[in-house]
């Protein structure tokens, strides 16, 4: 474990706590893409198949359980909680995310560390996570004004994988045999997708103005 990865995991956890706070405190999920949340739940379920077979550390196991439980709880809430589901922007959340599923799965069949069930699904989860934010970013552009908690949520979500890039650089310097091309290239793509969001987030922070994404 290194400071970059730890900060990355904490940033990821903070993003999830912000989303839970928004949904719990405002009983609303306006501005949140259910499709992105469903994709994240799938990312965790397919990535943490080794939850009961490979024990890495208490920290690793606990975080995996937290990520799986929170992502499923958010999807459940957005689908079934009477107040929350009413605030879901169904007519704006129209990104065809099934294409993202298919593309990630096909790529995982081609590019993986080993052609084994768990490894192909692990690669699938890596590719899927890289593009899972797209429905959310499209929804933000369509919904115009972004409320603070939603803006913070997306910001921390983007920042976590950026910190992981520093983690991979650090691990490479420590051990040149350490190569995680799949995770690293995918992480770069994932972070790049946030580029314009980060730009408008920085502008709104600098001008102390409301976060506005151009339509």
């Amino acid at each position: 474990m290194n400071i970059f990865r730890f900060l990355g995991d904490m940033t990821h956890l903070i993003s999830i706590l912000i989303l839970l706070l928004k949904i719990y405190a405002t009983k609303s999920c306006s501005g949140i893409s259910l499709k992105t949340q469903e994709l994240y739940a799938l990312v965790f379920l397919t990535r943490y198949l080794d939850l009961f077979t490979d024990f890495i550390s208490v920290y690793n196991t606990v975080m995996k359980l937290v990520f799986i439980a929170s992502s499923l709880a958010i999807v459940w809430c957005m689908r079934n909680h009477p107040l929350v589901r009413r605030s879901y922007d169904k007519q704006l959340d129209t990104f065809r995310h099934y294409f993202l599923l298919l593309a990630s799965f096909l790529l995982a069949l081609l590019l993986h560390e080993k052609f084994a069930f768990q490894e192909v699904l692990w690669a699938f989860s890596i590719y899927l996570e890289a593009v899972a934010i797209l429905p959310q970013l499209v929804l933000l552009q369509r919904s115009g004004n972004v409320d603070n908690l939603t803006g913070q949520y997306v910001f921390f979500l983007g920042a976590y994988r950026a910190l992981y890039i520093f983690n991979w650089i650090y691990r490479y310097f420590i051990d040149p045999h350490f190569t995680r091309w799949i995770a690293c290239v995918s992480g770069l793509v994932q972070t790049a997708l946030y580029a314009d969001f980060f730009y408008y987030y920085f502008i709104s922070w600098k001008n102390n103005a409301k976060l506005q994404l151009p339509a």
Binding site: R5, D9, H12, R47, D50, D54, I56, N60, M63, K64, F67, E113, W122, Y164, N167, R180, A183
Partner: peptide, 10 residues
């Protein structure tokens, strides 16, 4: 075996 790379990252 040790070549079995375990994914130790979240």
């Amino acid at each position: 075996g040790e070549d079995e790379e375990v994914h130790d990252e979240l």
